[in-house]
Nucleic acid binder design. Sequence first.
DNA 1: TCAATAGTGTCTCTTAGACAATATTGA
DNA 2: TCAATATTGTCTAAGAGACACTATTGA
Lengths: 222, 222
Amino acid sequence: MQISKVKKLFPLVTVDVALFTVVDGGLRVLIVRRENDPAPDKWALPGGILKPDVDKCLDDTAMRVLSSKVAVDVRHLEQVTTVSGAERDPRGWSISTAYYALLAGELVPAVAGASVKAIDWCDPTDLQDRLAFDHEFLLNAALTRLRAKVRQGALPLHLLSQKFTLTDLQRACEAVLGTRLDKGAFRRLIKDEPSLCLLPGEYLRGPQRPAQLFQAATGFQF
Amino acid sequence: MQISKVKKLFPLVTVDVALFTVVDGGLRVLIVRRENDPAPDKWALPGGILKPDVDKCLDDTAMRVLSSKVAVDVRHLEQVTTVSGAERDPRGWSISTAYYALLAGELVPAVAGASVKAIDWCDPTDLQDRLAFDHEFLLNAALTRLRAKVRQGALPLHLLSQKFTLTDLQRACEAVLGTRLDKGAFRRLIKDEPSLCLLPGEYLRGPQRPAQLFQAATGFQF
DNA sequence: TCAATAGTGTCTCTTAGACAATATTGA
DNA sequence: TCAATATTGTCTAAGAGACACTATTGA
């Protein structure tokens, strides 16, 4: 059986990941500059090819892709959608499952690893056709999904450092949603949230009233 | 290149579809009794293998699967999730993208076609381990997605015949959600819904006050 | 007239949004 | 004391839920 024949019978199976973090109060997504074919020198979401002999499932593929780009551990990974077709990748009939992942804001030491010329943390709402393939569509799908979840009341604690104030949390939600939130209303909403764990006696101090510190409750799931 | 080698490098790519309809005011999903390996004689969601030479994308695969089971045209198809792994299908490393589809209530002339011994329209909330593979998981994911959409205010007009009354629509929403809705509140919600098109002078008559008929507005998208 | 369902109105309670007031620190 | 931010409180308008009322037909 020839390779060309195989390529007609089996699609290329890949994974692409939108890794979000918060920098200076703004949401950012990791993009990489491709070294190899196809689309060399073009920007894209970090992605990789499924290795059935290595990956237990596609989630593993996504984790493997991320760990080759980012030194620190990613705290949340969630599947968004699957795109497919003969035209979307010049290598032939392909399938790509898109994920999004969340990274704590301070830790952005991403590295340009193998087959990547450069990286950038860019504003996901302002990409101006920088992305190759259908990655702009995938990124928009990921952002829409993330926003829907936060709008429904999910708390993006994975975007924060381990200990955080309620203002930190509000800023993270605002960064995700792209809108300002009212302080009073926000605090009413999260007042009885079981996923928030108040740290008694621990405060963030500064030239103002100290702010109560919180951490995610054990077993917290975004 | 041997087939066994190919199977280790390329996953099996399939599609499974949860086709919903409403019968006697209750939500139903189509399940089929498998004829062939794997899992012969077991019930499952209708599914099929991707044919890259035939299908333009996975949505096409899903449509092809449905058209082999159901004689009439399916009015809505939406992707739910993608599952993957070496264990979920005995044939080896596999990927399956799950969809749900909606069918107008009266039209349930599904046929037991090729490689299917029998069909059944069963209550999706009461399946008692009838389904093979991980199809119960896929069905639950599909139902959850459908319910979320209706709860957010989407109107499942695709479950209704072309002309319908507001009571018909309320019954369909109730069937999807599995709860009773208040008539007054429901009508308040849909009062200014642009996807509903009142048919002037057209009424459903019976031994009671006639009911105004509606149809989906042109360009309606669920 | 009656049964049956269509369609509308009303009341209350909750909540979101806007905004104000108070609290507590470092400088 | 003052600037700055944390935290809490208040007012209002809009909406959800429950329930009742009126409308219109066939039998």
